[in-house]
């Protein structure tokens, strides 16, 4: 299997890297978010000819990240998901559901610690 690397970048470089990826003929595969203690890691994954390119940014809860939906139109599904599940604001999404993409019992469930009654 192919080895994988994740390149750390800054929030300011997100749009520029997306433009570069588009110019190189990559397709957007995935934007994923992970909560590590108090910070959030967001990974942008692009692919060309079955090879993955990953860029990682690290943000805090109140930070705002730019949308890449101007470059990759389809990225709105990922960006709305990150907003709804993590509560991170994404600026300038082309189709902004404003928090109604996922209707969850708890707001931004992945940004909080949840205990449910009756847990074993």
């Amino acid at each position: 299997m192919e080895p994988q690397t994740i390149v750390p970048i800054t929030v300011g470089e997100v749009v520029q890297k997306a433009e570069q990826a588009k110019k190189d003929g990559c397709r957007l595969v995935l934007i994923s978010c992970t909560k590590i203690d108090e910070t959030f890691e967001i990974i942008y994954t692009y692919e060309k000819d079955l090879k993955l390119t990953n860029y990682r940014i690290t943000v805090k809860q109140d930070d705002e990240i730019p949308s890449i939906s101007g470059i990759y139109w389809g990225s709105f599904v990922y960006e709305n998901e990150i907003h709804d599940l993590y509560g991170i604001h994404v600026k300038g999404i082309n189709i902004d559901f404003k928090g109604t993409f996922y209707k969850t019992a708890i707001k931004h469930p992945f940004s909080v610690t949840i205990t449910k009654e009756g847990d074993a």
Binding site: T34, K35, I36, G74
Partner: peptide, 16 residues
């Protein structure tokens, strides 16, 4: 695990 994130084909087929 710290995180398990699934991106399924239908999810990325929504924009098309």
């Amino acid at each position: 695990l710290v995180r398990h994130r699934v991106r399924t084909p239908t999810f990325t087929n929504i924009p098309p």
